[in-house]
Design a protein around this nucleic acid. Structure first.
Length: 551
RNA sequence: GCGAGCGUAGCUCAGCCUGGUAGAGCAUCACGUUGCCAACGUGAGUGUCGAGGGUUCGAAUCCCUUCGCUCGCUCCA
């Protein structure tokens, strides 16, 4: 296994990305804008390929997932229900003396004080508030940090028409859950997939494109039955080992099996586009890290050049994707805030329930009741109302009704692009006959994601027959894949150019193609990017040969 | 947001200390050449030296502000 690349190589990677047209800084001619990035010609192709592979794998090739493409600006009520309006606007302050940063409300609380607001809604520290680190009272005034981009719908800027650019794509899926389920004729368990832009006003965009303010997500919300329903129908809920792929989905899977299934499915996806398991890392969130409603969350990490080493010198990696088991929190929140029912009716559950012995019914009823009550209480519903609502919910379960739970594999496209780029980046030192050495760069992309699939090159450009034949081969392949034709400079230089672009195959039209050796008429030289090896292939077989390797 | 460092051609960088209106290598383009891995020849283009302001007869060079990048702190639901 290759050693994780170091931070020095990061600078060279950034430089190559610009030089070859993978990634540019946004608005560069005006001095740039922090946290925003553009994809150049090669980057745009790479990203399209990745998104298309995700879309195909997650939706088209599955019976149980449907797609969605929702708007970026949605009703602000969505962000109240999701909790983003509250958690994304903490007041922050800095200590001018020791330079530590605090959440202003927590800082006050730690000292038995309370943060207040003045008449204008500005946060005010109570007298005597000091830094808990160095005891200094020289604190900057508390400023609200809103991590959501704000705008106004309609031409008048007033508090009544504030809207936000979505900070994640997931909520649109929950909001359209019912519509999608009905029109796609799906039944739980099923999923809704979406690819789209999201925006976060990050405090510090860092590490090249890794943490950007505008970014793209590929998210699946996979809706499953609550474990109590599975147990009612199948007698028990099967659990699977916490490592390894659990195999094809089974009807008696509970959230734990589905969660493990999606973690492993996602790892397969990454392996399928060239990220070996050894380049990935995993982080299973601890009970303290988990949100109160979450059952589990496994982050899939990639070992970036900038990733930190732990005390043992091991690189853990940074997050590409989080696979979260989010219980029924999201749909429940939208049911409460919108007043619209988010539950589903499950005939199989209704019939199975009727055949259960009384003790089993009571046990399941009680457990479902407790879960619902815990959720409602945690969400601030007062005890009596929560008890009543939970009773209704548990009675609903007995009639075949429940709010689906959800497993959420949520991936960052731009982070994945950066992972693919750093993973592909390879330096080779080459020494020529005269002992002069130079470093050559190869982007070893998996053919499935490579921006250019094949370079088509006439051996010499001053031989019209070679050029004409090469143009014909280019036009033959063009409807099927991204082809790059190049006749500039020497053949070696053109190979090198394609190596830097990460083109997995080059096809050279030479004198044998024209029939200099009659038995080789209409064959071409096929050259591999990674080892420079060559073989001969008939032009008539070229298209299928390439398609088999790039799909 | 705080602190430190940096910003000169598409890329990597020299020049800045000790002010006198800009250079190298690579890359790019054209023509020629080239019988398979960055060959060669000739020619061409490119910078308001990140931006704005100040000091000065004169600023890439000194000072201030600002934007961007890197690192540390912080943040990352």
């Amino acid at each position: 296994m290759a050693e994780p690349k170091t931070n020095e190589s990061m600078e060279k990677i950034v430089s190559l990305c610009k030089r070859r047209g993978f990634i540019f800084q946004s608005s560069e001619i005006y001095g740039g804008i922090n946290g925003f990035w553009d994809y150049g010609p090669l980057g745009a192709e790479l990203k399209r390929n990745v998104k298309e592979l995700w879309w195909n794998t997650m939706t088209r090739e599955r019976e149980d997932v449907a797609g969605l493409e929702a708007t970026i600006i949605m009703s602000p009520a969505i962000w109240k229900a999701s909790g983003h309006v509250d958690t994304f606007s903490d007041p922050m302050c800095d200590c001018r003396k020791c330079k530590k940063r605090f959440r202003a409300d927590q800082l006050c609380e730690d000292q038995g004080l309370a943060l207040t607001k003045d008449a204008n809604g500005k946060f005010i520290f109570p007298a005597g508030t000091k830094c808990t680190n160095c005891e200094s009272t020289d604190l900057t005034e508390p400023r609200p940090f809103n991590l959501m981009f704000k705008t106004y719908v309609g031409p008048v800027e007033s508090e009544d028409n504030v809207a936000y650019l979505r900070p994640e794509t997931a909520q649109a899926i929950f909001a359209q859950f019912k519509n999608v389920m009905e029109t796609a004729r799906q039944k739980v368990p099923f999923g809704i997939g979406q690819i789209g832009k999201a925006f976060r006003n990050e405090v510090t965009p860092r590490n090249y494109t890794f943490r950007s303010r505008e970014f793209e997500q590929m998210e699946l919300e996979f809706f499953i039955k609550p474990d109590e329903a599975v147990e009612a129908i199948h007698g028990s809920v099967v659990t699977v080992p916490e490592t390894g792929h659990p195999g094809e989905p089974q009807p008696n899977w509970g959230w734990q099996a589905w969660h493990q299934y999606w973690v492993e499915e996602r790892v397969r996806f990454y392996e399928g586009i060239g990220l070996a398991r050894a380049t990935l890392g995993f982080h299973r969130q601890t009970a303290e890290e988990l949100a109160h409603y979450a059952r589990a969350c496994v982050d899939i990490l990639f070992k970036f050049p900038f990733s930190k080493r732990d005390e043992n010198g091991n690189v853990k990696g940074d997050e590409l994707e989080g696979v979260a088991a989010r219980s029924d929190f999201d749909l429940s929140q939208h049911a409460r805030f919108s007043g619209k029912p988010m539950g589903v009716f499950d005939d199989e559950l209704r019939q199975a329930w009727g055949k259960l012995p009384k003790e089993k019914q009571d046990d399941l009823w009680r457990r479902y009741y407790e879960n619902r009550k815990r959720y409602l209480t945690k969400s601030g519903v007062e005890a009596e109302a929560a008890g009543k609502q939970a009773t209704d919910d548990a009675n609903g379960l007995a009639k075949g009704q429940y709010i689906p739970h959800v497993i959420e594999p949520s991936a960052g496209v731009d982070r994945l692009i950066l992972a693919l780029i750093t993973n592909a980046y390879t330096e080779t030192v080459k020494t020529d006959d005269k002992g002069k050495s130079e470093t050559i760069y190869t982007m070893k992309f998996h053919p499935r994601v490579a921006p250019i699939k094949v370079g088509v090159l006439p051996l010499l450009k001053n031989k019209p027959e070679l050029v004409a034949k090469a143009v014909a081969v280019r036009d033959l392949l063009r409807p099927w894949m991204n082809v790059y034709y190049d006749d500039g400079g020497s053949i070696g230089k053109r190979y090198a150019r394609q190596d830097e672009a990460g083109t997995p195959f080059c096809v050279t039209i030479d004198f044998d193609t024209l029939g200099e050796k009659p038995e080789l008429l209409d064959t071409v030289t096929l050259r591999y990017r990674d080892d420079g090896k060559q073989e001969r292939l008939k032009i008539s077989e070229l298209r299928d040969w390439l398609l088999a390797r790039i799909r």
